[in-house]
Design a protein around this nucleic acid. Structure first.
Ligand SMILES: [Zn+2]
Ligand SMILES: [Zn+2]
Ligand SMILES: [Zn+2]
Ligand SMILES: [Zn+2]
Lengths: 160, 160
DNA sequence: GCCCTAAATGATATGGTGTATCATAATTAT
DNA sequence: ATAATTATGATACACCATATCATTTAGGGC
């Protein structure tokens, strides 16, 4: 995400927090900015490193964890539980209500996109779970994938 | 799983390994037995602890990780990536070919069951992923759930 | 059985992830 | 201003996982 887009998205994040009565402090905003500028999900310690580069001073890992917790609660960032990494929400600039996201994770280049699978499919999943004697609590999915780019690469490589 | 079932399952695991030319050594078998006797998924270090209790001597964590890797490759155990825990495959005694499993994880009591979601649903998921510019690599799902037991409990608790 | 090789296991060190706890600073409410 | 609440910092520690090199064990040809 380029500088202009980051600025605009941070503005939208401020609006969103103002609306919900949450306090988007400078440091929380900086952590979000680090995520927005990153092409890939970052671990908490990745963020610590990048933060000190971007903002000229260290930040305690403990604080980063708390800020990520805050950002996640506000749906400004999400945690990939299967990867122990974090990424900015793709819908900060959108007005629609935020629904539970699904993530497609490229196992080769680590690119991740946030999608919304059709509600009927999620309901079908919920039914399948119910039939097995469980209740689905979260429809956040993290799917091991290849992005089309890497899929093409791997074919090329296999051919050579 | 009771002692008799464990014995029978270990026998099936031996058969399976013989068939595939893999070596199910005593220690690998013991690690599998620890998983079979557990009602819940275990971390590698949980296994280290339980192993030394069950077999009267310590085992290096490093070895446990390698044995789990072996068991996973042979489809005798699976790793829950979202939990960093391991569990025995539920189908060791079955003759059918092992398909990629889906796991329902109770967030309250940690019970986990291994299910197989209908292939048509997996295909629908694959299509949705493809439409987003990715290719689904693994259909292993780990779903945050409540088991019916815990779901009932939490209702009761909420009422009180 | 003996020797060679490959596979499995052990020992040690180190890095990555996450939380608990208590102290301090900043914000908000009265 | 003062007090209460919230946010941040500092420190310690627990847990998860891998890298590397040494040692032991198992199989196969002789
Ligand atoms: Zn989102
Ligand atoms: Zn890719
Ligand atoms: Zn299985
Ligand atoms: Zn339960």
């Amino acid at each position: 995400m380029n500088v202009t887009e980051v600025e605009r998205t941070l503005g939208a994040a401020e609006d969103s927090c103002r609306a919900s009565g949450a306090r988007l402090t400078d440091k929380r905003k900086n952590v979000l900015a680090v995520l927005l500028r990153s092409q890939k999900p970052l671990s908490a310690y990745d963020i610590v490193d990048q933060y000190s580069k971007d903002y000229g001073g260290p930040i305690p890992a403990m604080s980063v964890y708390r800020m990520l917790e805050f950002l996640a609660k506000e749906n400004l960032a999400h945690k990939l539980n299967s990867e122990n990494k974090y990424l900015a929400c793709a819908h900060i600039n959108c007005n629609h209500h935020h629904r539970t996201p699904q993530f497609l994770i490229c196992g080769s280049c680590n690119k991740v996109i946030e999608i919304g699978i059709r509600p009927e499919m999620i309901e079908a999943l919920r039914d399948a779970v119910k039939a097995a004697g469980f209740r689905l609590q979260s429809s956040q999915l993290e799917l091991n994938c290849l992005c089309d780019n890497c899929a093409k690469e791997s074919v090329t490589t296999a051919d050579s």
